[in-house]
Each structure stands twice: as C-alpha cells, then as structure tokens.
Design a protein around this nucleic acid. Sequence first.
DNA 1: TTTAAACCATAGTATTTTTGTAGGTTTACA
DNA 2: TGTAAACCTACAAAAATACTATGGTTTAAA
Lengths: 143, 143
Amino acid sequence: MKFSTKDRYALRLMVELANRAPDEFVPLKEISEHQDISLKYLEQIMTPLSRAGLVVSGRGSQGGYRLARLPVQYTAGEILRAIEGELVPIPCLENNAADCPRRGECYTLGFWSGLNDAINRYVDSVTLEDLRQQPLGADDYSI
Amino acid sequence: MKFSTKDRYALRLMVELANRAPDEFVPLKEISEHQDISLKYLEQIMTPLSRAGLVVSGRGSQGGYRLARLPVQYTAGEILRAIEGELVPIPCLENNAADCPRRGECYTLGFWSGLNDAINRYVDSVTLEDLRQQPLGADDYSI
DNA sequence: TTTAAACCATAGTATTTTTGTAGGTTTACA
DNA sequence: TGTAAACCTACAAAAATACTATGGTTTAAA
C-alpha cells in the first residue's frame, strides 16, 4: 500500500508552480533542475495534469506551464486523482468493478469503503495553498 | 495506491475464524474451500499472522488455527500490519527510511504524514468484532 | 500406528505495475 | 527563421504481485 513516485512528484510539481508568479510560464526544464526529476519523466507526469485542466500550457519559445487557478482552489486529492484515476484502496471499489459474486455476503467491503472515505476526506481537506506555505511538520496536518 | 490481495485475504481469514466457536481449531483446508483460496497461498498468509501471535495453531490431527483473543480485542489495523509491516503511504515515512537531503525543505512530507495518521487512525478504529457482525454497507463504517 | 494437520523451504513463473528512456513532431516567440 | 518549448508515441528495465509446484518434517489426536 504505497503511493507511487508519480503521485509524490505531481504534488511537488504543483507546489513549485504555486510558488511562482501566477501568470509566469515555467518550462519543465527548470522544474527538472530544481526537483532532480528527468525532463522526460516530468513530461509524463505533467501531461495528465494538463489534460485534467489543472495547469495551463504555453507552447513554443518562452512557453511552459502555469496553474489554471489560485493555489487555494486546488485540493491535494484532485491532483492525486488526476494522476491515479480513482483513489480507491481495493479494486472492488472502482467504478467499473467486476461484480463480485460474494458482494452481498462480504464482511469486509464496508470496512474498505470506510477507509476509502477516510482517505478521500483527508486528501480533499488539504489545499495546494496549505502545501505551498513553507515546509511543515506532520502536526500541522493532524485533525 | 492499492492494498494487496494478501491484505484482503488476511481480513477474510480472521473474520472466518471469528465466526467460529472460540476454542475450535479450524484447518486451513476448510478455509481454503470456503474462501476459494489455494491451500498453499493460505499458508503464506497465515504464517505471519501466527508469528505475530494473532492466531494460535494446533498441530497434528484435529489441529488447525483459532483466534488468540476475543474478536473485539483485534483491530483491522494490527491484522493488516502483521501482513504489510508498517502501514505507511510513502517510503519516506518508514522507520528505517534513508535520510532524504530534501527532508528539511520538503513541502509535502507533512501532508503525507497527516495521511498516514488518518489511515492508521481509521484502521485501528475498526475491530474484528465489527467486521464479524454480518455483511455491512459502507455507511456503517463512516465516521 | 495411521492420519491429518501445521510447519518449513525453496523455487519457479506469469502478470502487472512502476519507473523510467528515446526520438521525433508541432507550435510560437524573438 | 532559428530556437525553445510543449506534445506524442513507443519502448524497456526493474520490481512487485500473485500465485503454483514440489516436497518434505514434525506433531498429536484417534
């Protein structure tokens, strides 16, 4: 049960953009150097963020990426979901889950569904603005 | 970000034991048939549960496994941790995590740590007795 | 003493996911 | 028109997952 590096990198990317001027296009090359992530890998991570409309791209020379909205208008959850798709802890909870014959008699589905709620409630309670505000410890995010 | 089948099976195993008489040894062969999990795979899952002291084994004929305590005395969290080890969402939060040079300036570690807390708080709030009580829907586990 | 069970080891394997790399095409600014 | 950037497609190495197979040793109840 681990989040992927793409998930982690995506958050770092978005924080990097959030810490720039709102109208400034930042090229991936620059982020690549700051964050020690290869340009090509960055591309793969930025693409779904762009497709989801979380960032705006400018092509050609002097192009790059910038946020589409204010940092306070993003949740960590929607960033992670742009990369992961649905943020569910087990396959049975996916939207197009194959209908399991045990479903009606499953003793654990409710538990997993509750975990799903707890996770999504948490990640949607943290905004990009929260992340942007200087490095913080764990305590700052405890409920 | 998915829990493994071993995690899911481990919960189902424990529920199965919880639904038997407390002093009854249940052989893996029986659970294997009930849950459609191969005997050999079951062994692999039961071993860490046994080593962690969550179940008691009886060897020889008429042997099998039974719970070591009452269902209400287990949390889902400790069952999952017996299988997974630490239940952390990213490597940086593991106990023996390589010390990251960015740690002091990381904008996202606090977020992940908060998620870690949310997850562990939830899984430790559900007991095996809760799971045992008939199949339940998601709503029964929402906070 | 037969039998059924845990326990132990170890290996193999197929599949999927993760974590990237490589190379080219299109766009738009200066 | 040169240049720097996004954009697109494909490939590939490594790791994790989810098993199966094999074959035994030890234990204890009937």
